[in-house]
Lab assay of single mutants.
Amino acid sequence: TIDDAFRAIERAIQAENEGRYREALKHFLDGGEMIVTAAEKEASQKVRNLLLHKGKEVLEWAEHLAEWILE
């Protein structure tokens, strides 16, 4: 659900702030994927587009974090 997705993102932010970057990455990926999944089930085109945009933002952040971890 969207609530689960945002809880995962909150955990990711907390982990990132505490320097637990790999854990943060996992939570960002989980949250982003949950948002995209919820968007695919959404009946309203406007809400679907907003959710897809937010999911994409979260997944892009996860990608940047992963690249930073690997440096």
Rank of each mutant, 00 (worst) to 15 (best):
L59G: 01
R22I: 11
E60W: 09
E23W: 03
H64M: 12
E63H: 14
Q45I: 13
E63Q: 13
H64N: 07
K56V: 06
A62P: 00
A8V: 12
F6M: 09
L29R: 13
V58C: 06
A5I: 12
K41Q: 10
L25Q: 02
G32T: 09
A39C: 12
E63T: 13
E10N: 10
E63A: 14
L51M: 04
K54C: 15
E57N: 06
E16C: 15
K56E: 04
K41E: 07
F6K: 04
R22Y: 14
L52M: 09
I35G: 02
Q45N: 06
A15N: 03
E67K: 13
A24P: 01
Q14A: 10
A62M: 08
A8R: 10
E71W: 09
E67Q: 13
L51W: 06
N49Q: 10
A12L: 05
M34T: 03
R11S: 05
K41F: 09
A38I: 13
E42V: 14
L52V: 03
M34C: 07
E57A: 09
I2E: 02
G31P: 01
Q45W: 10
W61P: 00
E18F: 06
I69W: 04
L51N: 00
D3V: 13
R22E: 13
H64D: 04
G32W: 15
K56H: 06
I69A: 03
G31Y: 12
V58R: 00
V47G: 04
K56W: 11
E60K: 14
D4C: 12
G55M: 13
L50F: 10
F6G: 02
H53R: 15
S44K: 06
L65A: 03
R7E: 06
F6N: 04
L65V: 02
E33W: 15
E16P: 02
D3Y: 14
A66H: 04
E57I: 13
I35N: 02
A62R: 02
A43Y: 07
V58H: 00
K46Y: 12
E63I: 14
I35H: 03
E23S: 04
A15H: 06
A39D: 01
W61F: 05
V36S: 05
L52P: 01
K41D: 06
V36D: 01
G32K: 06
E23N: 04
L51D: 00
F6P: 00
A8C: 13
K46I: 14
E40K: 14
T1F: 10
Q14D: 05
I9A: 02
K41W: 08
E16Q: 15
E42M: 13
T37Y: 09
H27I: 05
Q14H: 10
A15G: 03
I69P: 01
H27Q: 07
A43M: 12
V47F: 12
L59V: 04
D30W: 15
Y21D: 01
V47C: 13
G55P: 02
H53G: 09
G19P: 02
L52A: 05
L65D: 01
K56N: 05
F28S: 01
Q45Y: 09
Q14F: 06
I35V: 03
G55E: 02
I9E: 00
L70C: 14
N17H: 09
E60S: 10
I13V: 09
E10F: 12
I69H: 06
E67L: 11
A5T: 02
W61S: 01
A66Q: 08
V58S: 01
E60M: 14
K54D: 01
R20E: 03
M34L: 13
D30Q: 14
E33S: 12
E71C: 12
E67C: 13
D30I: 15
I69D: 01
S44F: 12
K41G: 10
A39T: 02
L70Y: 08
I2Y: 06
G55S: 06
E42G: 05
V36N: 08
T1L: 15
L25M: 07
